[in-house]
């Protein structure tokens, strides 16, 4: 640009030319009173429509790439963390806390993740990679796939059932560990994503979870285990005190236990053993089948096909 613009500092007159005029034609100020008006930085008008649109587009694209990059780089670590956390929660239902090496401890205690068959038998062993988040169980339950984790603690068999439900503000979930009789509670674990800290959030604390230990679940083929208002638990066998001032969350836990465990009723009542009491000698035919299936429960017809594929 050959032409520059000069502005008179006294009156504001703008002169166009290569250099400032000798004196201002309006107020007669000398050339020293003129200063050059520099064009906007780098010739960019930051208020123009084109600039605004391009700025927005470039910014969004950069941010999008950045977020995708971060998410891709960290995904494996995050998945591993989530999986480890799930394992930790399952172990916590067995009253095993303060775990250092989660994967090793999990492998030591948990014998497998089984799906419950129609007749209540934990039959099909599924890949452990099937579970990732607690949310997953909800979809699994809706799809009719009912997970049962089989564990062994001090030589005793325990069954762990994952649960999902709704609290006051958002999802709650938990695991309930049962003794071999499939009725007495060995331990529980509850957690939540957004219950009020100090009130509903207390379901995630040890003292609340310990209230369940030793209670029974099933009575007359229904889920009798109930979370009541605090101080209202009258029945030693089936009722558990809720949390003071967190009635809605306590109700959520109650509803979760009732609906989810009802789905597992055939398992809890050993439906597959019905009709052959005393006939199931040589082992419990409702037992989860593992690799060492010896196929000696001949009376339990129908499910034997499942044994064969383990007979390697």
């Amino acid at each position: 640009m050959a032409t520059k613009e000069f502005k008179c500092k006294v009156c504001g007159y703008v002169h166009k030319g290569d250099k400032a005029p000798d004196s201002c034609p309006v107020c007669q100020a000398p050339a020293s009173e003129f200063e050059e008006i520099k064009p906007a930085k780098k010739g960019l008008n930051t208020n123009s429509n084109a600039y605004t649109i391009i700025y927005a587009a470039v910014m969004v694209i950069i941010v999008a790439f950045l977020l995708v990059f971060v998410s891709q780089v960290l995904k494996d670590r995050q998945d591993a963390n989530v999986k480890n956390d799930t394992r930790k929660q399952i172990l916590s239902a067995l009253n095993i806390t303060d775990v250092q090496d989660v994967a090793a401890t999990y492998a030591e205690y948990i014998k497998g993740d089984f799906l419950m068959a129609e007749n209540g038998k934990p039959s099909e062993q599924v890949d452990e990679a099937d579970f990732k988040t607690s949310d997953k169980y909800k979809q699994e339950l809706a799809a009719g796939r009912r997970h049962i984790f089989v564990a062994e603690v001090n030589g005793e068999r325990k069954f762990i059932i994952p649960m999902n439900g709704l609290g006051l503000w958002g999802p709650i979930w938990g695991y309930i560990a049962l003794n071999e009789d499939r009725n007495t509670i060995y331990g529980t674990y509850f957690s939540h994503s957004g219950e009020t800290p100090g009130l509903g959030g207390e379901i995630a604390t040890q003292y609340f979870q310990d209230r369940f230990i030793g209670k029974n679940v099933v009575k007359d083929e229904t889920v009798a285990l109930t979370v009541t208002k605090f101080g209202k638990a009258a029945d030693e066998q089936f009722e558990v005190d809720g949390i003071t001032a967190a009635t809605m969350t306590s109700n959520g836990v109650n509803a979760m236990i009732k609906t989810v465990l009802a789905e597992y009723m055939p398992f809890l009542t050993k439906a597959c053993c019905k009709g052959h009491e005393g006939g199931c000698e040589g082992g419990d035919c409702c037992e989860a089948e593992q690799t060492e299936c010896d196929g000696d429960h001949a009376e339990c017809d129908g499910d034997h096909a499942n044994c064969d594929k383990h007979n390697k």
Binding site: T46, N47, T52, Y55, A56, V60, L67, V70, L74
Partner: peptide, 27 residues
């Protein structure tokens, strides 16, 4: 920053930062 969309630009920067921090924490 274009004056007319400065609030949006601020919001995008904050949201992106928070998302990144939360992803890093998760990992």
């Amino acid at each position: 920053i274009p004056n007319r969309i400065r609030i949006i630009v601020q919001l995008v920067v904050v949201a992106a930062l928070v998302t990144i921090v939360s992803e890093i924490l998760k990992a």
